[in-house]
């Protein structure tokens, strides 16, 4: 079984990039456009990991993390946030919302994959 990743980003470019990078690394990828879309897809995707952008329309990354952590499904799935900021405040905010870790954009394939492996058992 390959690792299932639910990747959430409102930018089509980012989504395509994630899909390409993650597929090449052998992961199964489900894409979502924003927090609500991700919640919609969560039951079926049954991910081993959620990778999410923070600033998105309708429901942002914090909202998604909160909803997942408080929800019934996949409440303890590792969640990595994608952020362009290296600012510590954002990381703290993400962590206190329940994020497992973070990846700074722009990422290279190696760092993305190694960070994912770091928080998953795969």
């Amino acid at each position: 079984m390959s690792l299932r990743v639910l990747a959430v980003d409102d930018s089509l470019t980012m989504r395509e990039m994630l899909r390409q990078t993650l597929s090449e690394a052998g992961f199964n990828v489900v894409l979502a456009e924003d927090g609500l879309d991700a919640l919609d897809r969560l039951p079926e995707a049954d991910p081993d990991l959620i990778l999410t952008d923070l600033n998105m329309p309708r429901m942002d990354g914090f909202g998604l993390i909160d909803a997942v952590r408080k929800g019934e499904i996949s409440a303890r799935v590792p969640i990595l946030v994608l952020t362009t900021e290296s600012a510590a405040t954002l990381k703290d905010k993400a962590r206190s919302a329940g994020a497992t870790g973070w990846i700074t954009k722009p990422f290279d394939e190696k760092s993305l994959v190694s960070t994912i492996r770091r928080v998953t058992a795969m």
């Binding site: 590792p78 994020a99 928080v119 998953t120 058992a121």
Partner: peptide, 9 residues
């Protein structure tokens, strides 16, 4: 644990 971490990892 609530943040999806696994100490084993």
């Amino acid at each position: 644990y609530a943040s999806g971490h696994d100490p084993a990892l």
